[in-house]
């Protein structure tokens, strides 16, 4: 086993540990931190698999922003209250969003499995990735953007609704 393989295994085990923490830790802060550990080790694995751009983006977007948002929400929620106290009056709207999201994801998935296999060069350069995203993978890329846009609009709608009451 080479040194690279050993390091890769260590990161894989760390990521697994993080995932288990997400599942089994009782305190929400530790759940979020487990997720962070998972994301960071995943990024390290990407980098070791010759996709440094993907790895770094993983760190910036997921570890740098998403988990921070999770922590932010955990801080704002008063954790002594049980989560079942949450107001579920927008259940119908949530179901609608879920439906749209699932359908869009399904569409993207169906499109992607028909595509030729991943053509990124061994060095995983950002330039090549950008080129691929705007040529061969343009439609899934745009579909993903559309999905995010829908999510943003819905978030704004929900926020507005709360304000009016």
């Amino acid at each position: 086993m080479t040194l690279t393989a050993v390091i890769f295994t260590i990161f894989a085990l760390l990521g697994l540990w993080g995932a288990l923490v997400v599942l089994f830790a009782k305190r929400p802060v530790y759940n979020a931190l487990g997720l962070l550990l998972n994301f960071v080790s995943l990024a390290a694995m990407y980098i070791m698999l010759n996709a440094p751009f993907l790895g770094v983006i993983q760190i910036i977007v997921y570890s740098g922003a998403i988990v921070v948002f999770f922590l932010f929400v955990i801080m704002i929620l008063n954790l002594r209250d049980p989560l079942t106290d949450m107001d579920l009056s927008f259940k119908g709207l949530a179901a609608f969003i879920m439906m749209i999201a699932t359908l869009s994801l399904l569409g993207v998935y169906l499109y992607v499995i028909k595509l030729p296999s991943w053509k990124l060069g061994p060095e995983g350069s950002p330039a090549r990735l950008g080129e691929l995203l705007l040529t061969d993978y343009l439609i899934p890329f745009e579909l993903a953007s559309l999905l995010l846009l829908v999510a943003i609009v819905i978030a704004v709608v929900i926020g507005k609704k709360g304000e009016e009451q």
Partner: peptide, 15 residues
Amino acid sequence: PVGVLLLLGISALSG
């Protein structure tokens, strides 16, 4: 080759 992005990632993590 992705030094700038790595830097952004590090600064995000230091928060």
